[in-house]
Design a protein around this nucleic acid. Structure first.
Lengths: 246, 246
DNA sequence: CGTGAACTTGACAGAATTCAAAGTCTGTGG
DNA sequence: CCACAGACTTTGAATTCTGTCAAGTTCACG
């Protein structure tokens, strides 16, 4: 397990960090806020919390109290599938929110597990709700994130329903690629924080299928993969694979 | 096309209708509100609109302005699948909201089409947002509905990913059954407002598969179906079919 | 360097789609 | 009221895809 810089840096940074100087502000919950509003929001954020790889941020069914914004690292959200295994419902990256689905029932619907050593900002929901009542701009932003989450789920449902195995994998890779690119990292060469099993659970395929597909993609020159390091050599071909008609 | 009573009754009722005396209030957006708060909400609801069967309430991509609460009738929400057909993303019944997924992008992500002659309450989002700033209870209720919508999408994704064809159909039928029952109608005998094609689009199967499955369920005595009239003769057996392991 | 977990590869069987065609319902117009 | 046309539904046979089972291989960590 490679302990990345985040953890070492967390101790000194924890006190200094606030939303005002956070590099991910533009894509996080307080996006669009400035001045006093931003500082008020910053006060709502109670604490930062470190979560090591494979550790759980919150369990499924645990009582809901806070939302979490990912400061660094990556999480998977999953819930027990009736069939027995774990169904992966999403991959959550820097600047994104965790726990939105807990508001209705008052309990976390899924559990969140760190795919790499991570840090999150803890956002107590009660305090957030109170602030939103005074900051309509923040409420709008919150609704937008909610809506985006809903749309993401819908895309996932569509992927699972309509797409064949090669398309499912291609769509996942392209999704990851775009999100890494949006965060200033390479969209064509990255490290998979998900295991083959995780990928299988997300696409609802078997590990064997994932392995076969990656080999096939590699052999046809669409990408190059070695363990968890992946290079999208031919993004256009991957986009073509992601189209449903074939 | 059978013009149901709703339309004939709509003209006289339209003016008299308000949330205070609406029979669906308990499961609609203003649930939990009372007194002045409820009346304030009632004023936000701009108008009622009649949508006949197969008519479209809003198109996908149309600019977002209002949410809609279903007053009577039933809708399907769908969006164009990359493959070409329509992917059904949900069935919306009395007391439920339409348009939540439009808030993020400012455009309706999917189109809503009436499955039967229907009426909706038009809820302008700007006015709603303004009211929510003054009514924290309403804001909480709104968030809860949002969260529930997200959870519903997740269940749908899980259904599509993990369930085999018989389970998908069984789960849909049980879902409809429970929702009809929650609305005071029979949960064991009802009329399918969805065509076989709609069912296929929702479960991401083919019309042929749906037809075969219904025949099989009928032959094994689980249900009785004649055109679009369905009777769940053996709900226990249907629940058993809905389990994922097999 | 060894051990166990993660990953890859192959052969086979089962499930669902596709293609093709017959049968049924609905609403229109005579 | 009845006949007809088109859409909707049902049924059958062949094909394709993915899962299952069973090895073998590589990688990570002690």
């Amino acid at each position: 397990m490679n302990h990345m810089s985040a953890e070492a840096a967390s101790a000194p940074l924890a006190l200094a960090l606030n939303c005002t100087n956070c590099p991910w502000r533009a894509m996080c919950l307080p996006a669009g806020l400035a001045g006093a509003a931003l500082e008020a929001f910053s006060l709502v954020v109670g604490a930062r919390r470190t979560v090591l790889r494979n550790e759980r941020l919150h369990a499924a069914g645990a009582p809901f109290g806070s939302l979490y914004a990912v400061l660094c690292g990556e999480f998977k959200t999953q819930c027990a599938a009736p069939a027995g295994g774990m169904q992966l419902t999403g991959v959550v990256m820097t600047g994104e929110l965790l726990g939105l689905d807990a508001i209705a029932s008052g309990r976390y619907e899924s559990e969140a597990v760190a795919l790499s050593d991570s840090m999150v900002c803890v956002i107590p929901y009660a305090a957030l709700a109170a602030l939103m009542a005074r900051q309509p701009v923040l409420a709008l932003r919150f609704h937008a994130l909610f809506s985006a989450e809903s749309a993401r789920r819908q895309r996932h449902a569509l992927l699972l329903g309509k797409a064949r195995a090669p398309q499912r994998l291609a769509l996942l890779l392209l999704d990851l690629s775009a999100r890494y690119a949006a965060r200033g990292r390479s969209g064509t060469a990255f490290h998979l924080s998900m295991s083959r099993e995780d990928i299988a659970a997300y696409t609802c395929l078997t590990v064997e299928s994932i392995s076969r597909l990656l080999s096939r993609f590699k052999q046809t020159g669409v990408l190059d993969v070695s363990n968890r390091d992946i290079v999208l050599s031919d993004p256009a071909a991957l986009h073509a694979l992601a189209k449903l008609p074939p």
